[in-house]
Amino acid sequence: MPNSWITNKAAGEKWLVGFMARNKELSLRQPEATSIARAAAFTRRNVSSFFNSLEEVYKCTNVDGSRIFNLDESGFTTVQELPKVISPRGQKQVGQQTSRERGELVTCCAIVNAVGNKLPPVLNCPRKRYNETFMNRAPEGSLGLTNTLTGSAWMTSDLFIRVVQHIIKHARPIMEAPMVLVMDNHASHCGYTVLKMCRDNDIHIVTLPHTSNKTQPLDRTVFVFQNVHTATTPDQEQPSTSGAGGASDQQPSTSGAGGASNQQPSMSGAGGASDQQPSMSFAGGALD
Rank of each mutant, 00 (worst) to 15 (best):
residue 119 L to G: 07
residue 138 A to G: 04
residue 104 E to P: 04
residue 4 S to G: 04
residue 120 P to E: 07
residue 275 D to V: 12
residue 51 F to L: 03
residue 66 S to N: 12
residue 139 P to C: 10
residue 35 S to H: 03
residue 191 G to L: 03
residue 172 R to Q: 12
residue 27 S to Q: 10
residue 186 H to G: 15
residue 75 G to F: 09
residue 236 Q to R: 08
residue 147 N to V: 10
residue 134 F to R: 05
residue 224 V to N: 11
residue 65 G to V: 06
residue 190 C to S: 15
residue 242 S to N: 12
residue 148 T to E: 14
residue 66 S to I: 02
residue 204 H to Y: 07
residue 13 E to A: 10
residue 129 R to K: 15
residue 229 H to P: 00
residue 65 G to P: 00
residue 275 D to C: 09
residue 46 N to A: 03
residue 254 T to E: 06
residue 49 S to F: 05
residue 48 S to E: 11
residue 238 Q to R: 13
residue 180 V to D: 01
residue 5 W to S: 10
residue 101 E to P: 02
residue 243 G to T: 03
residue 215 T to P: 03
residue 76 F to D: 03
residue 31 P to E: 13
residue 83 P to M: 01
residue 242 S to T: 15
residue 114 A to S: 15
residue 83 P to N: 05
residue 280 M to T: 11
residue 286 A to G: 11
residue 248 S to L: 12
residue 7 T to D: 12
residue 254 T to C: 07
residue 208 L to Q: 10
residue 47 V to H: 02
residue 207 T to P: 01
residue 156 T to L: 02
residue 111 I to P: 00
residue 233 T to D: 01
residue 73 E to M: 05
residue 6 I to E: 11
residue 164 V to E: 02
residue 188 S to E: 07
residue 3 N to G: 13
residue 238 Q to I: 02
residue 210 H to A: 15
residue 228 V to Q: 14
residue 55 E to G: 02
residue 142 S to G: 13
residue 196 K to E: 07
residue 288 D to T: 11
residue 204 H to D: 00
residue 209 P to R: 08
residue 183 M to W: 08
residue 234 P to L: 09
residue 122 V to G: 08
residue 271 G to D: 10
residue 123 L to E: 01
residue 53 S to Y: 05
residue 15 W to F: 13
residue 72 D to Q: 05
